[in-house]
Design a protein around this nucleic acid. Structure first.
Lengths: 223, 223
DNA sequence: AAGTATAGCATACAAATATACGGTTGTCAA
DNA sequence: TTGACAACCGTATATTTGTATGCTATACTT
C-alpha cells in the first residue's frame, strides 16, 4: 500500500507524521507547502487527495489540520518499526517492509494497567530473563501452571515460574542453582507478559560465554 | 504547580490532553467551549490565559489549535510505570514508588531512527535473546568488540556478538551448538541496544527447564 | 490520440479560528 | 467597601485555513 506512493507523496506523508510527532499536531496545507518550497496550496491539495485516495491518510473535512494518518503508524506518534527484511547493499539499512510498529502500549494491552518491575538476580536466566531486565507485569491473582509470575513472599517480590505440585502452588526458578519453593503464605501479584531489556555494552557477557564454551569443550574432550 | 489550578482549569487541561491523545491534535477554542457547554469563546480564552499564566500550557500565537501542554504529562500520553517496590497485602498491587515511566521512545533515543528485528533461532540464547524476541537495532557501521550486532551475510540478517580475532572481525553466537564465523564479505547493519519480548504462555518452557535440571542432576550424581 | 496521474503555478472565497473589547455575577480576602 | 479573581455571556474583527476553479507541463497507459 505504501509502496504505491510516489517519492514526493511519501515525503509529504513523512512530514505529516513528523509534524504530529514533533509539534503535537498535523500541519496545515500552507505549512506543508512552505516546508517543501511550494508556492501554491493547490499542489498540496492534489497530493493530499492522492494520499487519501491511496488510503494513507483520512481527512476531516472542514477541520483545520484535519489530517489523520491511517495504518500502523496511526495515532501513537512514535514507534519503532518492526521490519521483516533488511536488505544488504543499501546505504542505511533500508527498511524493506514494515510489519508493524513496536509500541509498548499496543503490545501489552494498556487498559488493564500493567506495570514494570526490574529483575534482580539471575534466578530466571534460563527463561531468558537476565539481571536488570524489566518484566512487564499484568496484575492478576489467578495464574496458570507454566506461566511466569510475580509473587510476593516474605515481603519480597520475586519472578518465578508457577506450577502445581501435589495440589500445592510452587514457585520454580529457571536456574539450576536455585531451589523451587512452595508459594505458601505468599501471594500472586500478576503474570509476566513481557520482557524489556536495554542492552549495555560490556565485554563481560561475551567473555563469560566464551569461557563457558571453553570449559564445556574441555569437559567434553575429557569424557 | 498543577495544584494551583482550579477544578475547571484542570478539567480543561485534561480535555486538551485527551484531545491530543484521542484525535491526534489539540482542540480549537470552540471545540473546548462546545465540550463544556459554553456559549462564548471568551470563556475559553480566559481559561487558557490562566493556564498559560500558571505555566500549564504554552500557546502558539496565531496558529490554529496552537496549544502545547507543558510538563511531564506532556506528549507521552501513556507509559508503563516502573516500580521499585510493590507491597504485599494491598488489594491491587499497590505501586509503591514509580521510579520512571517505561517508554520505548525515551529508552532507545528515537532520534537516530532505530528499528526492530524479530529474531529467528536460538543462536543467542545464552545472551538472553530467545527465538521470537524483538531486538532493537541502532543503525551504525562501526561497532565495538563485545557488542551484540546485526549483520548481513549472504543476504541474511543475523544477530551475533561481535569480536576481533587475529585482526579480523568475527561473529560469535551465544550458543555452544553454533559456530563462530568470520564477518568476511558481510556487513554490519547496527548494534543491538535493546530486547523486547512478549511472553507467551506455554508449559513447554517450564517443562524443558525442569527436564534439563533432572538430567543435569543425574549427571552430577553420576560424577 | 485520448485519458489519467503527477507536479506545479495563481487566485478567489467561505468557513474555521484566534484575538480583542466590553459586560455580568459571584466568591474571597484585605 | 474595595479589589482581585474565577467563570461566564455577547459581539466584532483580523487572520488562518480549507476548499474550489482554472491553467501549464510532463510522463505513462490504453
Amino acid at each position: 500500500m505504501r509502496s504505491e506512493l510516489t517519492e514526493k507523496q511519501r515525503r509529504i506523508l513523512d512530514f505529516i507524521v513528523e509534524c504530529i510527532s514533533d509539534q503535537g499536531m498535523p500541519p496545515t496545507l500552507r505549512e506543508i507547502a512552505q516546508h517543501f518550497g511550494m508556492r501554491s496550496v493547490r499542489s498540496v491539495q492534489t497530493h493530499l487527495e492522492a494520499l487519501e485516495r491511496k488510503g494513507a491518510i483520512r481527512r476531516l473535512i472542514g477541520k483545520s489540520r484535519g489530517i489523520e494518518v491511517i495504518g500502523q503508524a496511526r495515532r501513537r506518534e512514535r514507534g519503532i518499526p518492526v521490519v521483516g527484511q533488511i536488505a544488504a547493499g543499501r546505504p542505511i539499512p533500508a527498511v524493506e517492509d514494515v510489519q508493524e510498529v513496536l509500541n509498548l502500549d499496543v503490545w501489552f494491552g494498556r487498559d488493564e494497567r500493567p506495570f514494570a518491575l526490574r529483575v534482580q538476580g539471575d534466578s530466571m536466566i534460563e527463561a531468558g530473563i537476565l539481571n536488570g531486565d524489566l518484566v512487564i507485569v499484568q496484575p492478576q491473582s489467578m495464574v496458570q501452571p507454566g506461566e511466569i509470575v510475580v509473587a510476593i513472599k516474605e515481603n519480597e517480590a520475586t519472578v518465578k515460574f508457577f506450577m502445581m505440585k501435589e495440589n500445592q502452588p510452587w514457585l520454580v526458578p529457571a536456574n539450576a542453582r536455585y531451589r523451587s519453593m512452595p508459594l505458601g503464605e505468599g501471594q500472586i501479584v500478576g503474570r509476566v507478559v513481557g520482557v524489556v531489556r536495554r542492552v549495555k555494552h560490556s565485554l563481560h557477557n561475551l567473555q563469560e560465554i566464551l569461557h563457558r564454551r571453553e570449559t564445556d569443550g574441555q569437559a567434553r574432550s575429557a569424557q
